[in-house]
Design a binder for these strands. Sequence first.
RNA 1: GGGCUCGUGGUGUAGCACGGUUAACACGCCUGCCUGUCACGCAGGAGAUCGCCGGUUCAAAUCCGGUCGGGCCCGCCA
Length: 581
Amino acid sequence: MKRTLATDVTGAKDEQVKLQGWVHSRRDHGGLIFIDLRDHTGLTQLTIRPEEVDKQVFAAAESIRDEFVIEATGTVQERDEELKNPHIATGDVEVVVQSLRVLNKAETPPIHIHGEDQSSEENRLKYRYLDLRREKMQLMLKKRAEMYKIIREYMEKNDFTEIATPVLANSSPEGARDFLIPSRLHQGKFYALPQAPQQFKQLLMVGGVHRYYQFAACFRDEDPRADRLYGEFYQLDMEMSFVEDGEEVREIIDPLISGLVKDFAGKTLQNDNIPRITYAEAMEKYGSDKPDTRFGMELVDLTEKLTDCGFGVFKKAIDDGGAVKAIAVPKQFSRSEIDKLTDLAKQEGAGGLPYMIVENGVATSSIAKFFSDDELATILETVGAKDGDTIFFGSDKRDKVNKVLGGMRSHLGNELGLKDPDVVAALWVIDFPFYEWDEKANKLDFGHNPFSMPKDGVEALEKEDKLSIVADQFDLVMNGYEASSGAVRNHNPEIMYRAFAALGYDAEYVESKFGAMLNAFKYGAPPHAGCAPGMDRIFMVLMGEDNIREIIAFPKNGSGVDVMMNSPSEIDPEQLKELGL
RNA sequence: GGGCUCGUGGUGUAGCACGGUUAACACGCCUGCCUGUCACGCAGGAGAUCGCCGGUUCAAAUCCGGUCGGGCCCGCCA
């Protein structure tokens, strides 16, 4: 007898079929029992009539409970018109059961398997194997595989070679905390799980690999977030040799992203040609290096226009070389809402949150009296505020103003529902600064990582103002999430030494940290560039989720604990002893 | 490390600001009835020392202190 899938029964009318799956629900009418059988394809209704089966079979049907694993054989029959159920795919037919076998029993499930997330995440993670039976999670697993297939085909078509790099690697001096693995053979020494296969992929370029890619597992021991998994994640790690301009990398990725958004996810790509904006522009307009551009509410600079204004707070900021900027928000807020927003601004480092309300073409508020009518009119015009809008101001050092108003913009974009879930706004933020100022350590540090190429070559590194040096380094941003970073790599040891020298590190230090790579570069390293789109996060955006745990089979919770497997766990003293620990 | 927030039958919540009978509702579970349901229906039932510890009080799910756990955010992280 033919083994049939739940959703294939429609095409098997009047045929004898055998189905295997789980009991999704059971409706016992006494003299007639319906069972919705669920397998990985969907649901089919089994109908058990006492006149058509043995007594034992009917008794079995009576004793069956939800989530039992069963095997049923029977005949597919078209339902009478009035009995058809348009809500399920197989609702036109039913399987009239002849025999029934319980393959396994099931206790009452501790989470709801029907419908949308009706159980706490805590329980869902603890019983993930049950959670995965849910339609939504099944879809996530299948779509993820589909996405991988699309990407793999695209990369192969573009001459990329899939190569695996070691998972037992070395601790890297920069960046995130490492996961360390004690060596048994070399006691006192450690491997580390790679934060990314960065050095390996660059060494592949030196090794003559033209274009490389892999779905690389990356490991970082940093606190998780809603959009950041704890411990491990996957990126489409890729690198191209003989590329000296980051644009070439972006042009490879563009069609892939475009296809994933439109064809794979069925969403609208905001701009068919994925825009490029500089880091500086992103910070000025959106106050963020990963702006969500599905909505406007851009930051407007008022510094020039308010140099002589009578409002002491603004005046002082401007006199101190800072900036005054504003955003117009299409809503009037209550006093308590303003208070909450003010708290938010303060968390971002602002002293307060000055605002004006626009009514009848006039800006009013407690601070309005400090401005001339001309200045008020200029503010309205420059900010582009309309009646019913609220204008929020920031005044401080330029960086801080951008940060505060950028945080406000992002927050309000959510609050006011300005983020269209059917649209994906993708953009490249390019020209990241090579160095940045580390406020805490009060010293210069690398912006992203030390492996990037300064944009105007070695000479650029000699600039007096180190903070103005731009790297050929870029991020892909999707709906306000950082989806990828990438760069033209530094393949020249000289530049590497100089880049570190500017931070006060000598050649010895550089050699001790990056010896293998520096050494390799001496033997003819081709120029190369690449990027590493984060698969989990991109998939999350494509699926319209805002919690990255929703799209992963077995995520750890917010404390880095696998509540299902109970990892991390204590270890047998014998194992420790063997490692010399 | 810090801030905010949540913790009540198997599951999800209400009750808590203002302490006071038997802790309520929905889903699920159990028993019985039911031959066309698909959120099946009907009747009945079981199931919770309200995360834990301590305090205040005649009396604590409710107030106070502490602690543990979850979630979001900052720090951190590309």
